[in-house]
Design a protein around this nucleic acid. Sequence first.
RNA 1: GCCCGGAUGGCGGAACUGGUAGACGCAAGGGACUUAAAAUCCCUCGGCACUUGCGGCUGUGCGAGUUCGAUUCUCGCUCCGGGCACCA
Length: 825
Amino acid sequence: MNDKYDFKAIEAKWQHLWQREKPYRTCEDPDKKKYYVLEMFPYPSGRIHMGHVRNYSIGDVIARYKRMRGFNVIHPMGWDAFGLPAENAAMKRGVHPAAWTYENINYMRDQLKAMGLSYDWDREIATCNPGYYRWEQLIFLQMLEKGLVYRKETTVNWCDDCKTVLAREQVIDGACWRCDQAVEPRTMHGWFFKITDYAEELLQGLDNLTGWPERVVTMQRNWIGKSQGMACDFPIDDSQENITIFTTRPDTIFGVTFMSLAVEHPLVDVLIRGRKQEDEVREFIQQTLIEKQRAAVDEEPEKHGVFTGAYCINPFTGDRVPVYVANFVLMEYGTGAVMAVPAHDQRDFEFARKYNLTVKPVVQPENMLLEGDSMDAASESPGILIDSGPFTGMDSKQAKQAIIDYAEDKGFGRSHTTYRLRDWGISRQRYWGAPIPIIYCDTCGIQPVPEDQLPVLLPGADDPKGQHAPLHQQEDFYVTTCPGCGGAARRETDTMDTFVESSWYFARYTSPRNEQTPIEKKAASYWLPVDQYIGGVEHAILHLLYSRFFTRVLRDLDYLDIDEPFTNLLTQGMVIKDGAKMSKSKGNVVDPSELIDKYGADTTRLFSLFAAPPERDLEWNAQGVEGSSRFLNRVYRLIQKHIACFSSDLNADFSTLDTKSSKLYRKTHQTIGRVTESIESNFHFNTAISAVMELVNQISIASTDTSKTSPEPCILKFSLETCLRLLFPMVPHFCEEMWETTGQTTVLDGTPWPDFDPEAAREREITVVVQVNGKVRSRIQVAADIDSRQMEKLALEDERISHFLEGKKPKKIIVVKGKLVNIVV
RNA sequence: GCCCGGAUGGCGGAACUGGUAGACGCAAGGGACUUAAAAUCCCUCGGCACUUGCGGCUGUGCGAGUUCGAUUCUCGCUCCGGGCACCA
């Protein structure tokens, strides 16, 4: 008898079987309840890392568990295959991005298979495959038709390292999310998805995402950034023009003492033309624009501005207020013009103090008297209105509505909502992405590529020696003819942001090979939404928001009939070592392949599940892996030792068991309960594994005892089999092998999850804690169904307790049935 | 600055709706087996001290409070992590 199991042979054996028999292939079955488990698909960077191992182990346990629970489980895998690293590798190593990508995919697929993950490989997707991105191009055209795509010239975030534009979500602290290079503003044309059309729906939808972590919901809510308030027109003195402002504090409108415009505001030019301030203002605008370029990463620069010489009229008071241009006003938010109320806005206050402008308090907070001249900070809290014409005396909340109503009535203002969310710029000036299917013609203008001409293929991708320069450098690609007039025309050379591919891949998985349509509605309505989505929290905004947006777009294009793509979201923590995220530069990387080679996939999976609950960071510990390996070997030996018991009959009479057997039988049911509960409530596999370890320990102790009263064979058999079934989702190869060893003729894979019998798990005898003044003084063994009166009696009779009481009379006795007695003296 | 999390032995982490703090694992120490080592098995393992016994005191970041009883609830801090950051 070997004392260690041969994981290499065993894992190869079962993986071959899974490869050959494809037990994880799924198809729609209306008679079965479906369950869609999905882990965020990887970028094929070369090899898998520990983060993947963790992510996919978690997903695989859920998939296997749900199968045992009788669900029709779809568990697909694919590749987020477009992206910059492929182009960088191409430049550095002289390989074609396509070749590099497919090579990586092949390697990583083998790695995933070596982990024993139960994917339906027949549904595999690579987004760089024309069979995928052709549908994305079609969706783009259909969105264009619906008015959800447009082209405009704007200031964009340019990353000079990646030589491409970034969406606002992809700029982290003023730097590129991918390479950390500081972004710089650039003016150029680009294509945009109108995600703002869905801002309100995306926001409302968050309330229904009860299966998402609260903080992800909060992050999205903040990102969408809804503000309700009023838009109000301030007529410019001696002009027909109005300056329209947006404010969330209409209640402070009587406190306006000046007006601030963004430097880019279109009216600035009109205001200053011909005035003596003109040169000074133009100089200021120039300066500020330069500053803005540089300041991308810096903190808040000092507030400054310059008077334009113009005045406008506060429509509520008739006051003439000076108009300034200020560096802190953003053209991208609201209307690019701000009514300045220095008494109640800190930024306006700082500005006013700097330029000696009037501070006029109009909202009086409780127990405070504000004086414009002596205030040293703005008072931003609500209060009672003063000095505010007909609105004086109202509280802020009341006044807000009254003021909006008044403005609406008079026609110079209206209630208005703005969002922080911007439209999603998807143009990327790269090669390795999905081409945007558009043609520019000098006579016909912008022409969509006709649907029957899709896909617009990425040139050179099927030839290892093919071209892979950015498309605007590939003449063969962009020279074309106009689909409208047949004349010479030029193709769009931008490719789509790679986040577009990941925004709908979960839907394509439901009909991955369909040649007629991007998403087969029947399949999609059966499988979607994703019941459990698992991935890193770093995608809390980017990918998850885009996917929610796309789901709604696809719904409105009649491909889907759901609103939200992911019912439940699990954001797993990072894998860290020596207190830091694993990275090449820190030299603390653990290679999963080495681990699998040394300990096997089962041990690797077991440890990554056992060391921490999924949502928390996992500290990698080499010795902990040894522990997991030891545990499996212990189970292996235990089964070898009791191999004879498996031929016994399971149908024993449980009511006549001896103590040892009934104890083990009870413990087994308790374990079923605990493991099931751990998985069902929050996927805390760490506690599930602990529970099985306890059971294994108990089996081991009960059966090694020198006294001849070992548990009855049928109970041993039941306990050991239960261990295997409970462990199967986590360590599938091992459990299948053991299952076979014990003489089973069918695989464990299809067998149902063990039934939990609460009656069998119920303890007959319990320990009651006896406290005196809240301190534990004694423990007594009693029957489980003891009543409170009896408990109190036994507690008071207890020798140790009477010693503690020393004849003192109990003031009060608290009895918690089946738990404890607390005697207060 | 604002908004979320989190803090429990040497370490990773347990503890149901307030009711035995430290499950399970790792590390450490001791022992058994062995010629020896590995592997395996057994015991100890929060801290303190005048431990004669199966005992006492203390202990879940800090300080208060509610309660017969608080890791759990309330208030106020400290530290750590994350997100947003001139958003009018």
